[in-house]
Design a protein around this nucleic acid. Structure first.
Lengths: 213, 213
DNA sequence: TAGATTGTTAATCGATTAACAATC
DNA sequence: TAGATTGTTAATCGATTAACAATC
């Protein structure tokens, strides 16, 4: 079922479309044209139509797009209609914060386990889930059909733990460790390099200040 | 001092170069060619040379690049040689985690304040910094020459708080709220939309599974 | 039907890669 | 000097935008 390959640029924009559509839906808006959406999102109407057409004709000439339908479809494209089982590796500040802060279940992500090496933390409960020792991780993945591992451990251990995860059959890693992971073909990795993001902000501040001169 | 405008694509790659150079430096490597770096980073040597040349000729024909020097220069381009004062708005799970988890001072970011509306949290200390009431925010920005605000509050309040921040003279917002901020010209915004990132991962899982069929 | 707006093709723009002269 | 590797120009590739025929 080889669909034409979709560029990263398009995929990167889908969640934003999804967010705007969701807000329109909540406001009770029934239909929207690419022109109107263009105005709201500050992207060209042409790009919106082009992007959506990668996945099929969701609109109707002379009418525009049905908000509810388009919202559903983008959600489906993003795989949000499916259930994903998720574990967090590393129950430190960030791991705990994500467990508590992200509304995982809202989008079909089920938080089923959290692991750490620190004996002082093991056994504690986070969001009702008991912190387990790292040794149980591999068995847990198999037994609970875990799809996604959220990696919030120091970079020094991230590579070896990622190896264990992929050996254990994980499908995807949401990587917060500040290192590039090298995973086997078929394992998906999405990096969240927070310090990179902060550096870009720092760059933009500096560039603006030097422009003013 | 109008330098030629650098594309987002290039800027986005700078922190990654910086990270690899830092690791080479720590390993005591003295010089590196674009070819070698290309092999390590899985990008073309041509792109590396092209990217670096936007900022000046850091290399030397027949030799390559001096690791220490290039590391310094990229750091300087990213503004990491300058001190940035930073406050966190929202002392919830994520705000607290960032305060504790990010090694801000390491890159010249000085964490000077954290604010919340919740009376139960105000007065508590996080990383040695007392949580202040939101009302004090604007005065604090002026008095302490704050450059960057880290926004970790719910999206419902993010827009109005961002307005207060920019009115207060903030230079940049590191935005974790799940909403697009509309700020005056000259204020820099870097978004970290975690749920968008998780959705992209979900998309990649689904695409791979359907490819296998 | 006439008007509106999509889906899609063509034109443009920008980013990446290739090639090679310059030079250490 | 000869060899290596940059800096930079030219070629290619891909993504964005414009235009318009199709169609609701």
């Amino acid at each position: 079922m080889a669909e034409r390959e979709i560029s990263q640029a398009v995929i990167g924009r889908l969640p934003r479309y999804f967010r705007y559509l969701g807000e329109l839906k909540d406001r009770g808006v029934e239909r929207i044209s690419s022109q109107e959406l263009s105005g709201m999102m500050h992207v060209t109407a042409s790009q919106i139509r082009q992007d959506l057409n990668h996945f099929g004709g969701f609109g109707q000439q002379g009418y525009g797009y049905n908000v509810e339908y388009l919202y559903q479809e983008i959600g489906r494209i993003l795989g949000l209609d499916k259930t994903h089982h998720l574990i967090i590796i590393g129950a430190g500040h960030l791991g705990q914060a994500l467990a508590n802060y992200m509304n995982f279940q809202r989008r079909g992500f089920i938080f089923t386990g959290i692991f750490d090496i620190n004996p002082a933390i093991i056994g504690r409960r986070i969001r009702g889930i008991e912190v387990r020792p790292m040794e149980e991780m591999t068995a847990f993945i198999r037994q609970n059909n875990v799809d996604i591992a959220v990696l919030t451990i120091p970079k020094s251990e991230a590579v070896s733990v990622a190896k264990k995860l992929t050996d254990g059959g994980i499908k995807a890693i949401w990587n917060f460790a500040h290192v590039d992971l090298d995973v086997p073909e078929g394992v998906q990795v999405e990096n969240v390099h927070l310090s990179d993001s902060l550096m870009r902000l720092s760059y933009m501040i500096g560039r603006y200040e030097s422009q003013k001169e």
